[in-house]
């Protein structure tokens, strides 16, 4: 089931194009407020988009050639929302709500089977109010799968869960989603890494990068995508085996396009050491002088953003830094360069 769509919800500033191949998983990666949930809701027709073109396996569900869009219940696109939206009935009845096969006996059998797949068969008689957050999410997953979705939409599947529940559900989804066409939203590059074949990076309602997970996460083309992928994008121009940075220094790189082309390397900010004075030995790093533009506290470390490079520094060193401080940043030598 290949899904190709462009949806616009003007009131929320969203106009996004996404596509996902049959049986593949697309992660829509972006910060809170980027419009990820809106895209999913528009795909499922839970939110009525202002403009939409949705094609599922060559069949147009919404678009210029249709007078009216196919309604939610005939799309086969099942949305699993962040709030789980379990109905006020038993867990078993919740899961049995979905199966399209009409007979109730069959529906209950399918429901029990799906509950077993998510490890919740012993919760069948409970009411939604008697479930923990993790259990409710599992039941919602079972209900979505029981509906035999052509496309499954997961909105932030780990939101609001404690670390333990989130990691066990992440492992569960890895097996369950293997052959289901899925679009999931996340603000976490780890989810995109572990669950997705493809990644679309969203910024302010637009998809700014779209490609295979390996490509987008390892070779981001914009600073924004790099930040979402947990990397820092160092841009420059190729000069025979070296990347000449915009600040004037240069870094030896591996591969990359021909001389004179714009290129970049993507580096983990934690892999960039910093020093206040010129280091005595160059070692494995090419040292670049940069100026601190912003300091971003991130839990147990601080990310220092410069004009060219960003680096993670420990709080003790960060305490001596201020906006405008000149800093030596060690960019690893021989990182793979790619054309922008």
């Amino acid at each position: 089931m290949r899904l190709e769509a462009r949806v616009a919800v003007l009131a929320r500033g969203v106009d996004a194009t996404v596509s996902v191949g049959a049986g593949r998983t697309l992660a829509v990666l972006g910060p809170n407020g980027a419009g990820k949930s809106t895209v999913l809701e528009a795909l499922a027709d839970v939110t009525r988009p202002d403009r939409a073109s949705v094609t599922l396996d060559g069949r147009e569900l919404a678009g210029p050639r249709r007078r009216t869009a196919v309604p939610a219940r005939r799309r086969g696109i099942v949305l699993l929302s962040q709030d789980d939206a379990l109905f006020p009935m038993s867990v078993l009845d919740n899961v049995a709500f979905g199966p399209r096969s009409a007979r109730r006996g069959d529906a209950l059998a399918i429901a029990r089977e799906q509950l077993a797949r998510v490890g919740c068969e012993d919760l069948a008689e409970r009411r939604p109010g008697e479930l923990s957050g993790g259990q409710a999410r599992r039941v919602a997953i079972a209900r979505a799968l029981a509906a035999e979705p052509r496309v499954l939409l997961l909105d932030e599947p780990f939101a609001g869960l404690d670390v333990e529940a989130a990691s066990s559900i992440r492992a569960l989804l890895r097996t369950l989603l293997a052959d289901v066409t899925t679009v999931l939203t996340t603000h976490d590059a780890l989810d995109a890494h572990t669950l997705a074949d493809d990644v679309a990076v969203m910024e302010s309602g637009r998809v700014v990068e779209h490609g295979t997970a390996a490509d987008v996460l390892a070779r981001p083309r914009t600073r924004f995508a790099a930040r979402m992928a947990g990397r820092v994008l160092i841009e420059g121009t190729m000069r025979g085996g070296r990347l000449a940075l915009d600040g004037g220094s240069s870094v030896p790189v591996e591969g990359g396009p021909g001389a004179g082309s714009r290129a970049a390397i993507a580096v983990h900010p934690a892999a960039i050491p910093v020093a206040l004075d010129s280091p005595a030995r160059a070692g494995a790093h090419a040292w670049v002088i940069d100026e601190v533009l912003a300091l971003e506290p991130r839990g147990d470390h601080v990310r220092a953003h410069g004009a060219v490079v960003s680096a993670d520094v420990d709080p003790a060193l960060a305490a001596t830094l201020a906006v405008g401080t000149r800093l030596w940043c060690g960019v690893p030598r021989g990182m793979p360069a790619y054309a922008l």
């Binding site: 839970v46 309604p71 219940r73 799309r75 709500f97």
Partner: peptide, 11 residues
């Protein structure tokens, strides 16, 4: 919301 989700389940 619940009605909308129920519709995506095919009801």
């Amino acid at each position: 919301r619940r009605e909308a989700i129920a519709a995506t389940l095919g009801a």
